[in-house]
Design a protein around this nucleic acid. Structure first.
Lengths: 188, 188, 188, 188
DNA sequence: CATGAATGAGCGTTCATTCAT
DNA sequence: GATGAATGAACGCTCATTCAT
């Protein structure tokens, strides 16, 4: 229904959905999400046409948040390795300080409710990061590989690193660096 | 001793579940799985106590199948790099020729129906591979990292590689090799 | 405040449950009760959390209705025998004009779905009658017996009397009186 | 199927049914009864065509056992009151020493699975007791009442008495006597 | 006959979505 | 728009009964 009234309510629902997805999974009833958001059952459907719609929007929102957090403070003039390292560190920091968002995003990522269109839009939010990657691998061993492959590898390494930073917070910095080193070794 | 429980039927159900999970996700009705397996609705519960039980057993079966496929033909005497490469190639081949199994396994892997115990048992089937990894990274940059981190990285690279081999079958071999190279570079 | 929960609907369900229990027993599907009440399948669960909850509430409602019918028009100043006779007659009249309620109540009474708490609450609705009994037996042969025993005997006699009044309506009054006489003889 | 082979097995099933009905109610699965009896699932249906058939036969068996226990040692020549008292005492003793049988019988008695024919046959086993009753009430206040009414009253008093003997075993004898006195006062 | 796997109708309950207020 | 009751399809699981062994 075009523009729903309260932006507050919309984001309350998205926040609640994040929380609830983490604790109950994607099969959590919309009623629970609504209650957690402090709105009525049916109001959820004023803001999101269907449950799947809610999930798609949430996916995008989380992905975009993650991307913008990663890019924060980036200086385009700096050396490439420095820039990539900066992004990587931001990214890991985001994951560590937003564990719920990350977990929800992971769950949503594997759901078949998320449409290809949404996934594509999600990728777009990470274009800037992709560019850094592209330049980083330009002369490395992956120079011939499809870009998607390189991105996938980076994502995979990132996931593994995040898991260990969360799991073993005492050594978070060490894991962060180890993850970056592995990435850099793969790329260059 | 009456009609014995039929191993055929059990595996028909597991196979059906694999197929159905790929097309309908984990929320697929047990009735659909049963029909696909050619057994009655209720018979599924003769072989698996609950839907979750079915999923857990399927997870293990798939994981074990994947592991044993990866280890096939391995010569313990060979050079380390050769052995790892052999396993890697087997693994990728399994993924390419069993895309349904792989996708089902991925879905099951993120489900919260799969118990920690099942996951632990799943890990055990991959011990031999873990040992190779351990030896491979022994003098490499990850020598100080927790083993779980190394495993996670390998899994991540494997996932990314599989995706691209399936997505772009014409260059499957190239992707396979690129994946392995990336792994080896990270480890050594 | 949206559509409010309708007391009408709630009692339609209770009435339907009474009817259906009489014809189909306690194993009657909730779906049948709902249909009989003219509401949707799922609406029953808006008013009663579970089938057992419905049964417990119905039990209480019937018991309370029976008690209050029995006490109607009672004059506390009257002679004891008159009062007991009055209650007895009311009680029998209730049974005769509400055969379905009585049969449902009987069925519910023997069900193990009815919780001790519900039974206790049911007893409370009959306190006034118990008091009359207490005073009636005070100097009679049962003066030493536990009160519960006396109550049980009264209930038993009442049940037997009701059965015969329903079974042989032509002589209902005679049976009613015979039942009362038996009771009075036991008590005094 | 005509005459099943093992009488042992048949009665094992009946005994198991009694036990199981007490603990799980009439909705207990036949499979549970079979397991408790130590026979296979399907064998139960060799001995009893349906679950309802099993229940009907069990009802009769229990009722007959109760009746014959009540009549044991009865001396037809003795004084009427003595005879009735003797039967009553036997009856109560049976109830106290066979609480499971009694409870199962109670449950079966209110079930609508028990056919009128079965109930009629059950009554027949108690004819001798009925005769005693008939003679006892011949000159009493219930002389004009239908015999069924008298029987019902006796049953009711018996039930109430049994309940209290079981509930308060220390005073079982006292309750037994009180019950009999009440009965005798009603009859004569 | 004994066994226990096979069958499939049936049930209580849930929940996304709609709609009366 | 907000609310929450109403709806009914859908699901996991049970269980009396049948039947292959």
């Amino acid at each position: 229904m075009a523009r729903p009234r309260s932006e507050d309510k919309r984001s309350a629902i998205l926040t609640a959905a994040t929380r609830v997805i983490v604790t109950q999974g994607l099969s959590a009833p919309t009623a629970v999400i609504a209650r957690d958001a402090g709105v009525a059952n049916g109001s959820l459907f004023t803001y999101f046409e269907t449950k799947a719609d809610l999930f798609n929007q949430l996916y995008l929102e989380l992905k975009a948040g993650m991307a913008s957090a990663s890019l924060e403070g980036l200086r385009p003039g700096a050396e490439l390795r420095t820039q990539v390292s900066h992004v990587w560190t931001n990214w890991m920091a985001w994951a560590v300080s937003n564990p719920e968002k990350r977990r929800a995003l992971t769950q949503l990522g594997v759901s078949d409710e998320i449409t290809p269109a949404t996934r594509a839009a999600g990728h777009k939010t990470m274009t800037a990061i992709g560019d850094l990657l592209e330049r980083s691998r330009a002369n490395g061993p992956l120079r011939g590989a499809p870009m998607g492959f390189v991105v996938a590898i980076m994502n995979s390494l990132a996931e593994a690193t995040m898991d260990f930073m969360v799991q073993d917070p005492a050594n978070a910095d060490k894991h962060c660096k180890a993850g970056f080193d592995a990435l850099w070794r793969v790329l260059t």
